[in-house]
Amino acid sequence: MTSARAQPADSKQQGDLAAMEAETKFKSGDYAGAVEKFKLAYQLDADPGYLFNVAQAYRLAKDCASSADYYRQFLEKVPSPPNLDQVKGWLADQEACVRALASSAAAEADAKLTSGRYVDAVEQFKVAYQLDPNPDYLFKIAEAYRLAHDCSNAAESYRRFLTKAPNPPNVDQIERRIVEQDECAKLPGSSASSGSKRPTDPKGPRDPVDRGAGKRRLAMIATGAGVVALGVAGFFTWDARYLAKQRDNLLRSCDTATPCTPEQWTGYKDRYNDRGDRAATIAITGYAIGGVAIAGGVALFLMARSGHEQPVAITPTSGGAMVLGGFAF
């Protein structure tokens, strides 16, 4: 059996072995493995140098929050190391990195708050606060809870904010909100644990929203555009036929009595062919666009009547368009 007196020496030896393994992993770029071994070495032999090594490994692993934490732990144990200025410089860099990460998380949270995703905003603000314990994030957490109608958590978060920042410029407003959220949490139907339910609207029931109005307006616009497109197509159809007739008449006029020169023949043919082809192309395009627009208008009108989104497929065809879908009446 090992004597009690021999245990510290054995522990130090085990710490040295763990540190040697950590250095090997550190040099090979396995910073995560080095962190674990340096931590083990510190548990076995509380040498503050291991805290510094853990901080270095975390820094090279791009984990600035953990790196800053271990630099601070090292300076608490060794306030004036030989490389104090260098350690302070690394610590400042890692703290700046942490603040940048927290600001990024807070920016995402602000975007979610603006878009009405209050629960997601709460979680993202919590990430920011965990990285950088800035009391402003606690206030934003409270605001997100309030907007989510989570009255109990909103009141608690406002109180936490005042604990960290006892005299903010808007202290009166915050205290009023704490009272409001406490009262809200007591309302019938309110969840005391989460406050997630919305209190009854004192204004009473509101008029139902006509969800089909927008679709009906779009249906009218699409149908009107389709009619115009079909009108344009009809005009160019007539124009193409007229040009073809004119071309044929001119070519027939080149009889044996007054023969046309080759240049006249080619000129008549090319001039009327080109214009006729262009008119025919515009007509076909107009029919296709008009058909699709009218079909889309009909589909939107039917969806507006049903009050539900329905699957609709509009497929152009040679004669216009084909609509496939299901509608509830």
Rank of each mutant, 00 (worst) to 15 (best):
M1R: 08
S3K: 11
A9G: 12
G15I: 00
L17R: 10
E21V: 06
A22V: 05
T24V: 10
F26G: 02
D30F: 01
G33T: 05
A34D: 09
D47N: 15
D47L: 07
P48R: 09
V54Q: 07
L60Q: 14
A61M: 08
A68R: 02
Y70N: 06
R72W: 01
Q86V: 07
Q86L: 10
G89H: 07
V98N: 08
R117L: 12
Y118S: 09
A121Q: 09
L138Y: 00
E143K: 05
S152I: 00
S157L: 13
R159N: 10
R159P: 01
R160D: 14
F161S: 04
K164N: 09
D172R: 11
Q173F: 13
E180G: 03
K186M: 08
S191N: 15
D201N: 15
D201H: 01
P205E: 10
P208S: 07
P208I: 04
G214M: 03
R217W: 04
L218F: 04
A225H: 11
A225G: 12
A229P: 02
F235M: 12
D239T: 11
K245G: 05
D248E: 14
L251C: 03
L251G: 01
C260V: 01
C260G: 07
Y268H: 07
D270S: 15
A279M: 14
T281N: 14
I284V: 15
I289K: 14
I294D: 05
A295Q: 05
L302W: 07
A304T: 07
T317I: 09
G319P: 00
F329A: 15
